[in-house]
């Protein structure tokens, strides 16, 4: 390793720590979030330095991009409701804070000592790890031919460790259900975002779809895959939402729900079919594996993209009730619970 590389790595490492520190201590929350986004981009650069381009793409689009968008939109919603009162409160608190911090000083010192001990312990553990352990890399390489793809990361995600990925898609779905159960989409009276942003989103969304398709295809033999592609689709959705687009009541019903579960459904279906043929769950025959992985990934891309965009929306969009809604038996109409929206 050359000196130049070492210098670069050291600079990058210190920048990461410094940005994280700034993001966590900046008194202004907006500034903190912007610094956090910059931190995410430097993380993406770090993944490249560590020979992990698949991770770099996921980090740049999800870790920096979508997380940043989520944080900023949450901050805007925090500020929109009685913002001035919050500032007053904060000033009031800041006054009492100084007193508190005096009392807290011994506590903070103790905390720092404890955390330093934790850090030292972690460093000791890692530095005493045995050298030159082959790890699972060789195993992955030996079985790559039967996996159906030639990008080892995709092989691990969709074939060898299919369980993990299936469960991860379920986590994504569960999260959305959690967000939806916290309330309907807030009726925000956003002003029209202006023709420039609107046009930008209209131009970029088709191109983002193209790029997502490309990443989906290229993931089989080079960095890329369903998660990176899905996050691009999610970004397209976020752009549309920012430009004022909202899913109509028809779209927000069954079509939305089907596309949300499509990824998990395709995964499970592909796993189940081969149980019937005497194989194990999620064990694909090598001759079909390539096509199967592509199909699962296509479904997963769509689901991931739409789930991420729906998470950005932050609540269940309104949908039209199915026309055949039946009245419940044994329950007079008046006793049905009335829902009221919380302020």
């Amino acid at each position: 390793m050359t000196l130049l590389q070492l210098m670069f790595d050291t600079l990058l490492g210190f920048s990461l720590l410094w940005l994280a520190w700034q993001a966590l201590t900046s008194p202004d929350l907006f500034r903190a979030i912007v610094l956090f986004i910059a931190f995410g981009l430097l993380m993406a650069l770090t993944w490249i330095r560590l020979d992990a381009p698949d991770v770099a793409m996921a980090e740049a689009s999800i870790g920096a991009g979508l997380t940043g968008a989520l944080l900023l939109s949450a901050l805007a919603r925090l500020g929109s409701k009685n913002g001035s009162r919050a500032i007053l409160e904060k000033k009031h608190q800041a006054g009492s804070m100084t007193e508190n911090t005096k009392n807290q000083l011994p506590f903070r010192l103790l905390l720092m000592v404890l955390l330093l001990a934790v850090a030292a312990g972690l460093v000791y553990v890692v530095l005493t790890l045995p050298e030159n352990i082959p790890g699972l890399g060789i195993l992955v390489e030996e079985n790559l031919e039967s996996s159906g793809v030639s990008n080892p990361v995709t092989a691990v995600l969709l074939n060898y460790r299919g369980y993990d990925t299936l469960l991860e898609l379920s986590v994504l779905l569960l999260t959305l259900l959690g967000v939806w159960s916290l309330g309907d989409m807030t009726k925000q009276h956003e002003s029209f975002p202006g023709p420039v942003l609107s046009t930008l989103s209209r131009l970029l969304v088709p191109l983002l779809i193209m790029a997502a398709g490309y990443l989906l295809w290229v993931g089989a033999h080079a960095p890329g895959g369903a998660f990176q592609a899905g996050s691009l689709l999610g970004a397209a959705g976020v752009l549309l939402l920012l430009a004022g687009w909202r899913p109509g009541t028809r779209l927000a019903g069954l079509p939305l729900r089907i596309s949300l579960v499509l990824g998990v459904a395709a995964f499970v279906a592909a796993g189940m079919v081969f149980i019937l043929l005497g194989r194990q769950f999620l064990e694909y025959p090598p001759s079909f594996a390539g096509v199967l992985i592509l199909l699962i990934e296509a479904a997963a891309t769509l689901s991931i993209g739409i789930t991420l965009a729906a998470l950005f929306l932050g609540g269940r969009p309104k949908f039209s009730q199915p026309k055949f809604s039946r009245p419940k038996l044994n329950q007079p109409k008046s006793s049905q619970p009335k829902f009221r929206r919380h302020k």
């Binding site: 202006g194 420039v196 942003l197 046009t199 930008l200 131009l203 970029l204 191109l207």
Partner: peptide
Amino acid sequence: LLVLLASASIAHLVAK
């Protein structure tokens, strides 16, 4: 071309 489009649009949005 994409960076051109993005940077011009974003500059406008920031200025606005």
